[in-house]
Amino acid sequence: MWYWFHRFASPAYFYRFAGKAIPWLATLTGLLLLAGLYGGLVLAPADYQQGDSYRIIFIHVPSAWMSLFIYVVMATAGGIGLIWHIKLAEVIAACSAPIGASFTFIALATGSLWGKPMWGTWWVWDARLTSELILLFLYFGVIALQSAGEDKRTASRASAILALVGVINIPIIHFSVEWWNTLHQGATVSKMGAPSIHTSMLVPLLIMALACKFYYATSLLMRARVELLEREHNSNWIREALKNHE
């Protein structure tokens, strides 16, 4: 396993592998997106209380999940980069930050659009919304620190520490619903036993969540390839890869 791990973590191998994987992942993302959106916007019935406006959850909930998931991936990759000095992990952490920030922004924006007809206001200072906003700030901090240093590797390592410190925020976000229990509704999907969401809505939601995961993978690999080209621009394998038009 370690052999495989080391081979995969070498930039040259990863670059070639990512180039081959991207078309497949992109196709899968497209198919899942189509299926999820069709299931969510056409097949799923309207909610008996909220009408059609609840359908925004098919974007909102997966984005909120992704905003947390990507932060954890970023912090883990940053930690791996710090401990074992693996260049690829630093690249993964650096490339995850902008994607995570955009998912966080989408979650906030769609939540606000949904809040206007449902709660009667664009924004409430509810615990969950606030922590999501803080998460966005944390992402901004990581991105800012990454772009501040002249040396990319030093900047990566510094922002990895910041990401790890910010991880303390993730459990606060997750448990804030139980802690402060305010306007935002509690979790409906992960409730043990019977989820309080109907299957016809749950299935498209999960498909959308999967589509977002694959979108992240695709976009991460694309960004990582560019970042590797930039960071390793005077190494031999890049010259060879460019010669072979990979």
Partner: peptide, 11 residues
Amino acid sequence: LLSLLVLPLYL
């Protein structure tokens, strides 16, 4: 940059 990094952690 310092205020951007530190203030969210102060919340």
